[in-house]
């Protein structure tokens, strides 16, 4: 049995310690917001937060997550109201939407560590997330907007 803390809930899962966190979260816990895209840490569809870092769950063994705090897209905010989510909605970023759990989870780390990201900062943070629909121009726009929203919230 492995004990996991996911979205502030504790779970006991009976899986191989080698199983990637992605499949534990998706198949065992039924939290399907975290997506399978490539399986080799190339695309970023599977990004979730492990102790606040934008970890790629497809190559992260569940054993690494023991004793750590896991946040998936389902647990990023209570009401779809993380600044990234609000900005994504305002800009209508997603097309098919499949990659955007990962995009948003990556953007959330950027926005936390750099409240006023420049285009270059956005490049540095988001170049690991692939979008086949080509929503990149809107991802960029939405991150700038999210930064503004976040700033306003603080005031």
């Amino acid at each position: 049995m492995i004990t996991l803390n996911v979205n502030n809930k504790t779970y006991q899962v009976d899986v191989s310690p080698d199983m990637p966190l992605l499949w534990v979260v998706r198949d065992t816990l039924g939290l399907t917001g975290t997506k399978f895209g490539c399986g080799v840490a190339q695309c970023g569809a599977c990004v979730l937060h492990l102790d606040g870092e934008a970890v790629r769950s497809c190559v992260t063994k569940v054993s690494r997550a023991e004793g750590k705090k896991i946040i998936t897209i389902e647990g990023l905010s209570a009401n779809n109201d993380h600044p990234a989510q609000l900005a994504w909605e305002e800009i209508d970023v997603p097309q098919c939407g499949y990659c955007h759990s990962g995009q948003i989870m990556s953007a959330a780390v950027l926005l936390r560590e750099n409240p006023k990201p420049t285009d270059k900062d956005i490049d540095d943070a988001m170049s690991g997330n692939i979008c086949r629909c080509g929503t990149y121009p809107r991802v960029r726009k939405a991150i700038h907007l999210a930064a503004e929203m976040q700033e306003k919230d603080k005031k």
């Binding site: 080799v40 840490a41 970023g44 990004v47 870092e53 934008a54 970890v55 790629r56 190559v59 992260t60 063994k61 690494r64 989870m105 990556s106 953007a107 780390v109 950027l110 560590e113 750099n114 900062d121 540095d124 943070a125 988001m126 170049s127 690991g128 997330n129």
Partner: peptide
Amino acid sequence: GVYAMKCTNCHQPKNTPGQHTP
């Protein structure tokens, strides 16, 4: 690394099995 692109987000404590994996 920086932001969402920190080395250990992909590079695990041990080699990931398979070719072309981190």
